[in-house]
Amino acid sequence: MTPVLVVAVTVTAALLALAGIASTLAGRRIGLLHLGGAALLEVLLLVQAVLAVVLLVRGDRPADTPTFLGYLAGIVLLPVAGALWARSEPTRWAGTVLAVAAGTVGVMVWRLQQLWEATGG
């Protein structure tokens, strides 16, 4: 759990959310830009998950480990679910669906960071 990664995830998620909302406002379906953004977000989240698991195995334990693991597993699924769902939506609202997923990632990553910092010792 490095702050750099958290910021990178937040920025990527925010840009993806903006791109999604923009395509809804423009009345367009999502394009390669959105799928690429979701893929980048997913890669960052997977790196973070691997890093967190390595730290957990080495003995760092957040105070609320079950919740931390729940967030860690859930957040990785979101860009995939959002992208798949948005692709199956043939209207301009596909972008907003993706934006909801991205916004959720942006919030969850900070909650994850909070949980990590509350170390149980």
């Binding site: 079950p66 919740t67 729940g70 859930g74 959002g82 769902w85 909801v100």
Partner: peptide, 28 residues
């Protein structure tokens, strides 16, 4: 379809969030 999908998406996120939270709280 359409805007209803967005609503379903947000509801889905909350179903997941509330469900996971309740599961952790009740079990631990």
């Amino acid at each position: 379809g359409g805007p209803g999908r967005v609503l379903v998406a947000v509801y889905g996120v909350f179903a997941l969030a509330a469900g996971a939270r309740a599961a952790v709280q009740l079990s631990t």
